[in-house]
Amino acid sequence: MVTVPPTILQPFLDAADAAASSRPEVDGDIARELMAEAAAMLHNSLALDHLDEHDHALAVALLAADLTAPDPTEAVRARATTIAEDAALHDPEGVHGAYLVVMQVFGL
């Protein structure tokens, strides 16, 4: 069994909880299970390993929000097209590349 670091797992579980509390059609337990699996896939993909701590945390938070959007595919794809312009990132091109990898890993 792979242990997902809390820096990835917790934001994903928090996003699942937020989605379940704000959208009645979302089952909280299933959302947490799916997001835990997504966190494991993200961790195993090594897509974020090249990012510094700041960009890693921001990318995880953005991915967690995008993956719990009503249309996760559209949310991730939309973010991928604009993330390289985000002035808050230290390595916007690196985060953009990570998003492209995540799209492949998750089949988006």
Rank of each mutant, 00 (worst) to 15 (best):
S45F: 05
R23C: 08
F106P: 12
A78I: 06
A98V: 06
E93G: 14
L89V: 07
E25Q: 10
D52C: 04
F12S: 01
V105W: 07
A36L: 02
T73Y: 02
V4I: 07
M35I: 01
A98I: 05
A15Q: 03
F106L: 15
A15E: 01
A47C: 10
T81Q: 15
A59E: 03
P11T: 11
S45R: 06
A69C: 05
L63W: 00
V26D: 01
G107D: 08
V60F: 00
F12K: 05
D29F: 02
H54Y: 06
S22Q: 12
I30E: 12
E25G: 02
H96L: 13
R79W: 08
A87P: 12
M1S: 12
L51K: 00
N44L: 15
L63M: 09
E25F: 03
D27L: 06
V95W: 07
N44S: 15
P92I: 14
P92M: 12
I30P: 00
T73R: 08
A64K: 02
A84H: 12
P24N: 12
A39K: 04
L108H: 13
V4F: 03
E74P: 01
D52V: 09
V102M: 13
A75I: 01
A64P: 08
L108C: 10
I8M: 00
A84N: 13
D14S: 13
P24H: 10
L100T: 06
E33Q: 10
D71F: 02
D71G: 01
G107H: 05
R77N: 12
L89P: 08
A15S: 08
G28Q: 11
D71R: 03
M1E: 09
R32D: 00
G94N: 08
M41T: 14
A78M: 10
H43D: 15
L63H: 01
A65I: 00
I30S: 08
D66H: 06
V102L: 07
P11S: 11
V26C: 01
A87H: 13
T7G: 14
G94V: 06
A61Y: 05
L108K: 05
D49V: 12
V95T: 05
A47R: 04
R32N: 00
T82R: 15
L89A: 07
T81S: 15
D17M: 07
